[in-house]
Design a protein around this nucleic acid. Structure first.
Lengths: 241, 241
DNA sequence: TGATTTCCACCTAGGTGATAATAT
DNA sequence: ATATTATCACCTAGGTGGAAATCA
């Protein structure tokens, strides 16, 4: 990420209001947005896989050193101004103010009290930022370099999350306005997208065995994946294309 | 590489005139260049290693599938306009019109006739192109994705070279002029750099054993490198930092 | 015979979940 | 008890030169 001074001051809400339907396109109020933003459309990649995880209750490992997400957050973008410059970012907002624990006997998540003090809120800039709309729309945009950590003092630019808390990934498209004083209407120059099926519980170790099995079956980096895919006693785990 | 239509038509010489000293900065005739180009300075990284290879007579493997260069061509750039947009590219020009063969008994290269028909001349765009000067100057620019092939019908965008021919890598900095009709003075909008110590012989298998040994000693991907670095009978091979 | 191709063992580099040890 | 940490074997992915086979 180069100097991003021209982005202005983005005002993003830091909580997910569940009383409103969490629609995939929060930027649909096109009349309030600049033309470089108003037409932007975003499609989640690997949606079937995300949904399969979501049905079981997605868990994402957080470690001190930082751990990648699986599935990886990937989107396909359309409707950008091909010659305009954009910055793409992600953040994670708490789904609620609760701390959870997993009840193995009932295989379900229970509320274990109020949320811990919020972890330092960070933005993850896609490393190709800034780039032109044509570049972003050319192919799938992948956040595979994004890593999750539970280290409050993390110095590697990873996303800091509280273990045993639920999070909603959020994706932002910011138009880099070359005009002077563009900060005066910065609110017109970005839009945000949330995909409910990408919500997850941050954990330091997997709790739900079925999540573990689906990770192994679908992540090529997880060990003995080839065997498990054809193992008869796990035949019920099917991995969507 | 995005659409590069604005680059105009570059006229680059396709031969290396050895009657002139092959200086590192061919773009020093600053009066004929635009301000975004005239100040550009380029420094070869790993120069000591390049020189060590050059003294032995550098060889680079070419394969049908494409092989990376070692050492990798890397440069540090200064003097760009931080906010101007540039494209960085490389090409390879024949050092002479000769075909060579290696005489093992004398451990030297002999002329084996006139050059074969020239391989299709290609440009390799640095994959980060186009980008602003600030981005390019921030850190070393590495062409580690560049691959060499001897396959005349290569379909992977690799650089096509004739085996047993000598080549001079060349590096180009192109200013992406946003002005209309910028093609009219495209010759002002780029500069080129050649580093004599990066010349090499394209081969399908190493000929000079000392080159093989230096590759093994200095390339972390070459096998048993750790052992060879400390092996007493190869103690004469020192790898510069 | 010299040059090229194919295949391979052996690396680097780094992403996995399992496990055992440790912390709270 | 429950949660976290460190370590590890085992993967993916891909860059090496060596050796044997093949080509011209």
């Amino acid at each position: 990420p180069a100097t991003l001074g021209r982005l202005g001051c983005l005002q993003l809400s830091q909580s997910c209001d569940l009383s409103l339907p969490c629609c995939a396109d929060e930027g649909s109020l096109s009349s309030t947005k600049c033309p470089q933003i108003s037409g932007v459309r975003v499609q989640l990649e690997m949606q079937a896989l995300w949904q399969q995880f979501d049905q079981l209750g997605t868990e994402m490992i957080v470690t001190k050193a930082g751990r990648r997400m699986f599935p990886t957050f990937q989107v396909r973008i359309s409707g950008m101004d091909p010659s305009a410059e954009y910055v793409l970012l992600m953040d994670f907002i708490p789904v609620d103010s609760k701390r959870y624990r997993y009840a193995f006997h009932s295989s379900s998540w229970l509320v274990a009290g109020r949320a811990d003090v919020a972890a330092p809120s960070r933005m993850h800039f896609h490393p190709d930022s800034p780039a032109r709309g044509a570049q972003w729309m050319k192919q799938t945009v992948s956040f595979d370099s994004l890593k999750l950590t539970n280290n409050l003092l993390d110095d590697n630019g990873h996303m800091i999350l509280n273990s045993m808390h639920r999070y909603q990934p959020r994706f932002h498209v910011v138009y880099v306005d070359p005009a002077p004083n563009s900060h005066l209407n910065a609110y017109k120059n970005f839009c945000s997208f949330s995909f409910p099926e990408t919500r997850f519980m941050a954990v330091t170790a997997y709790q739900n065995h079925r999540i573990t099995q689906l990770k192994i079956a679908s992540n090529p980096f997880a060990k003995v994946s080839h065997f498990l895919c054809t193992s008869p006693n796990l035949i019920n785990i099917s991995v969507p294309r």
